[in-house]
Each structure stands twice: as structure tokens, then as C-alpha cells.
Design a protein around this nucleic acid. Structure first.
Length: 149
DNA sequence: AGGGGGCTCCGTCATAACTC
DNA sequence: GAGTTATGACGGAGCCCCCT
């Protein structure tokens, strides 16, 4: 995407996804572009300057997916030398967290879809406007040409 | 029929950003 | 600073289409 100026698109459904600047935050393992929270949390941004940072994304998928690392503190190995209660509590806490995150992910995807649809609509509107303006310009040029002749 | 590729959706993880 | 929320990345599952 090449944009010299951030294109602000007024979109009633923009919600968390503003239409600001999109910057390439980092290069990932798959080589996909990460739409970072560069401008602000509530803005997608498009700028010319790309940065490449060494973050957790530089790790392998396996390194990132150590299952035990995601367990609440105290869960790993807790069963070996403590009663069952803290373990159960921790597992419950984890379940709750996963459930909340599941919901959050759903909502986030819904908003993103809505945002994309909104942008597509905006593109259609602008294309129509552009066509109309071109027509208008052509007509005015015609009128002018006839006048000078 | 079945297998491969592309697409979409979902759950999970990691982490930045936010809140208290 | 700890806890919470939002979101990109990733991998798996299911579906569809096309080719053999």
C-alpha cells in the first residue's frame, strides 16, 4: 500500500478500527503484515516508513506455544506439593480468562468485518463521485469549447 | 472417489494499550 | 504495578471447487 497522506475515511462503523495510518510493525514468521497499533490503539495507520523490530514474533511457533507457560502461576507443578484447591481455583481462573478472550476475539472479528465492509462501501461511493465529477468536467469543457469557437 | 489448494471461521497465545 | 481488554498471529477444522 502506498499512501503519502493518511486517508481519513469517515465511517460510522469504524468503532475500534479508525482509518488512520497503517504501519508495518514487524515481519512475522509467515511474512504476513501485522497491522499494528502504531498510531493509537484505536487507529489503523498507513505510513511510508516500515520498521522491523525484533520481538516475540521472531521466536518459532513452538517456542511461542509452550502450553505450560500459559497456565496461571501456581498451576504448573502445583499438584505435586499442595492441596487440590489452589489448583482448581487456578484452573477455574484460566477457564474464565479463556472464555472472556474467546468472546473478545469474536467481538473483535465482528468489528473488523464491519469496518472492512464500511470501507468497501466508502470506496464504492467515492468511485461514483469520481465518475460524476469526471462527467461534469467533460461537460463544462464542452461548454467552454463551444463558447470560444 | 479422493486428494490438493484456497478460503473462512474459531480458539488460543502473546502482547500492547488501557484502567484502576 | 497488577489486572483487564483488544487485537495480530498462528494452527486446526470444515467446506467448496477443481483436477486426476
Amino acid at each position: 500500500m502506498v499512501m503519502s497522506m493518511p486517508l481519513i475515511v469517515n465511517c460510522t462503523h469504524s468503532l475500534a478500527f479508525g482509518c488512520g495510518n497503517i504501519s508495518v510493525r514487524e515481519k512475522t514468521l509467515k511474512g504476513t503484515v501485522c497491522l499494528g497499533k502504531a498510531g493509537s490503539r484505536y487507529g489503523m495507520a498507513v505510513t511510508g516508513d516500515e520498521t522491523e523490530t525484533g520481538t516475540a514474533s521472531d521466536l518459532t511457533a513452538c517456542q511461542l506455544r509452550n502450553p505450560s507457560s500459559s497456565l496461571p502461576q501456581g498451576v504448573v507443578g502445583a499438584s505435586t506439593h499442595s492441596s487440590q484447591k489452589p489448583l482448581e481455583e487456578a484452573l477455574q481462573k484460566r477457564e474464565l480468562r479463556l472464555m472472556k478472550n474467546r468472546e473478545a476475539a469474536r467481538e473483535c472479528r465482528r468489528k473488523k468485518k464491519e469496518y472492512v465492509k464500511c470501507l468497501e462501501n466508502r470506496v464504492a461511493v467515492l468511485e461514483n463521485q469520481n465518475k460524476t465529477l469526471i462527467e461534469e468536467l467533460r461537460a463544462l469543457k464542452d461548454i467552454y469549447r463551444h463558447k470560444v469557437e
